[in-house]
Nucleic acid binder design. Structure first.
Length: 278
DNA sequence: CGCCAGGCTTCTA
DNA sequence: TAGAAGCATGGC
């Protein structure tokens, strides 16, 4: 990983081709990033960050080197060789289309608790509304800072009631979020322990939470636990797979299936033949 | 307005 | 064990 400190900023020289801010921060894997005047602002957990692109470089503004190395480096998975990874994906023609559509996507390594809650909210829901719900969740129960609200802790949600969650307007998912928070708080779901489990057992553990089925568990594992072999299949992915990869992914790509999935998901939702198909 | 959305739980046969 | 109904809410 190549970086340099420039004043109070961190510069990632020449990374643009493998880290596009709109591709990565607005492709439906994280819901708390917003762009205004060329600058992306958002939270990961309780950490605030502003980023911008300068030609082929990406700048992390006002970021101590220690914070960069200790947190954002992992969040953006900067030690993964995306150039090489994408070359492997593109040997499969249908994937080459998806990668070509948004080659700057990276799969973020998000916080397990935040990812689990967020993807509980996503079930049978649409991306614009998910954004609103997640934002209200933070505004109502996250720690408030001058820059915005952090993602709520499990403790902040565990003692609430369904009635308390009414202003969140998340519908029938409210009891799911409460069950999740309560399980994490009282130790029935130990996320640190889950992180150490082999994927099949981790999957089973997450599915103990009400409202966490195969799809949500797969998303939590991919986006929150860095399990790149996990492959969430939502309605968009089912369409994309039927159309482009009816025989499934080539076997050698299975360890990074989840990353391939994110290119395909974004392509299915925003690609050219996406709206033509209706 | 009607269909659908990064699905899941529950009911039914 | 498989298949369908019911579910809150709102984007389009």
């Amino acid at each position: 990983m190549d970086y340099l400190a420039r004043g109070s900023d961190i510069l990632l020289p020449g990374i643009g081709g493998d880290l596009s801010l709109p591709d990565t921060l607005d492709c439906g894997q994280a819901f708390r990033w917003r762009e205004a005047d060329g600058r992306w602002r958002g939270f990961a957990g309780a950490r605030y960050l502003e980023l911008s692109a300068e030609g082929p470089d990406v700048v992390l503004h006002d970021t101590p080197e220690e914070t960069f190395l200790g947190f954002w480096r992992d969040y953006f998975d900067l030690d993964r060789d995306y150039a090489s990874l994408k070359r492997a994906l593109c040997r499969c023609a249908p994937l080459a289309c998806a990668v070509g559509h948004a080659p700057g996507i990276r799969v973020l390594r998000q916080d397990p608790w935040e990812a689990l809650c967020t993807f509980i909210v996503t079930q049978n829901n649409n991306v614009p509304r998910i954004r609103g719900i997640v934002e209200r969740l933070c505004g109502l129960w996250g720690e408030q800072t001058p820059r915005g609200a952090a993602f709520p802790t499990p403790q902040a949600l565990a003692d609430l009631t369904e009635a308390d969650l009414a202003p969140l307007r998340c519908g029938y998912r409210a009891p799911y979020l409460l069950d999740c928070a309560r399980r994490v708080c009282d130790g029935r779901l130990d996320l640190a322990a889950v992180a150490a489990l082999p994927t099949p057992q981790a999957r089973e553990a997450l599915r103990g939470v009400r409202g966490v089925g195969p799809k949500v568990a797969e998303c939590a594992l991919l986006f929150g636990f860095g399990r790149t072999e996990c492959f969430p299949m939502d309605v968009w992915m089912k369409r994309a797979m039927a159309q482009h990869l009816p025989d499934g992914l080539p076997e050698p790509l299975r360890p990074v299936a989840g990353i391939a999935q994110q290119y395909l998901f974004h392509y299915a939702r925003t690609g050219k033949d996406a709206r033509a198909a209706g």
